[in-house]
Design a protein around this nucleic acid. Structure first.
Lengths: 205, 205
DNA sequence: ATTGTAACAGACCAGGTGGTCGATATTAAA
DNA sequence: TTTAATATCGACCACCTGGTCTGTTACAAT
């Protein structure tokens, strides 16, 4: 049973390093050799564990990317408090994390989305799955908010979710190059403004 | 004087086709030969006019991309009417255009932004220039709106601009693969919601 | 110790990449 | 018609890419 422990260990090493390089240089600008070189491994090792580069990347998505997005954007908004507050805190933390990361290349998920959008259906499938989970989670958070009297009942939950996802993806793109901190601050202020407009009206309480 | 007319003609052909392929396949997944093949031109022709592939791409940005973004996102919001209405119409039209384009790969500018963000300073420079022009234009439109009584005076123009850019970039990414039309509709509804929250309050009139 | 298999090494390959370079075609001026 | 600059051709190069394959190690079971 412990025999495939080594197997999983090297696979983990390859996938972690792979994600790191794919993120920083892009998928097609990162060669299999690039990854192997940094790990002092050989082609033989790689193609013993994976059928192809594409297959390898799909494994990375399902093993690593899913969890990252989950812990960064989904788990933090699962709670019974005001969902608008949860989302605000969640976005704030995620953006703050990006600000402090001096080697920031944007939002992991959306970078890959952009690279494969309309170009590679096999890779897009698991990426879209992640997107869907995120969306569903946002929708249910907002609906919870309606039920608990935090969010105006007339608000379209799906619409708000799409709007939130859009703005997050976009701000992460805009934060990479110029004045990330300032842009984060401005973004968060407008997000609160938007939230104010969809929260349950105070007069009706 | 008309001697360099032929020169400009073939350069135009190469750049137009280049942009088309760079957009649909990405910069690094498009080879110079790909472009040349479609135009029945040879390497010699290409490297007679351009120093390198990178140089070629920068020319494309400055000659074609700038104009496209300008006519699509900047020019339509230059007017003396309600800027929030102008921006709404502008976004609506841009998104509608994407919905009807069966070969949509996302927002031209943001695709390249994503591909080169933090990776290629020479290419990022002209891309950031375009971004800046867009931002400045949005800011001044909103300020105009404040002056003319359409937008609440307490609104942070820079913040609103960043927020608008973010959401637009994001929605274009989300519209590529799944149900673009539905997402566009939801997005526009929430955009109007946000605009309602920053327009000049009716009570103060 | 022997065996068998899982894990890895690394030479190798075919195809593609950006880019070079001398030969050639086109064309406007002399 | 000659000339000379402009514009284009296409063979060529060094290098890199994903992927294959044969061989070698490490190690658990017998």
């Amino acid at each position: 049973m412990e025999k495939n422990l080594k197997r999983l260990a090297t696979m983990q090493r390859m996938e972690v390093k792979g994600l790191e390089l794919f993120y920083s240089k892009g998928y097609s600008n990162t060669s299999v050799d690039d990854i192997l070189k940094e790990l002092s491994l050989s082609k033989g090792a790689f193609y013993y564990h994976y059928e192809s580069k594409e297959d390898f990347f799909i494994q990375i998505i399902q093993n690593l990317l899913v969890r990252k997005v989950y812990s960064m954007l989904i788990e933090p908004i699962e709670g019974h408090e005001n969902p608008l507050q949860l989302i605000t805190n969640c976005f704030d933390e995620a953006l703050e994390c990006a600000v402090h990361n001096e080697m920031d290349y944007g939002f992991l998920l959306s970078n890959f989305l952009n690279e494969f959008n309309g170009r590679n259906a096999r890779i897009m499938a698991p990426l879209n799955d992640i997107l869907k989970v995120w969306e569903v989670n946002l929708v249910s958070a907002i609906q919870r908010g309606k039920f608990n009297g935090f969010v105006d009942r007339h608000v379209d939950s799906e619409g708000a979710a799409v709007y939130l996802m859009s703005s997050f993806i976009g701000i992460r793109t805009l934060m990479v190059e110029s004045s990330p901190s300032a842009r984060k601050y401005r973004f968060m202020a407008q997000l609160r403004q938007y939230f104010k407009s969809i929260e349950a009206s105070h007069t009706s309480v």
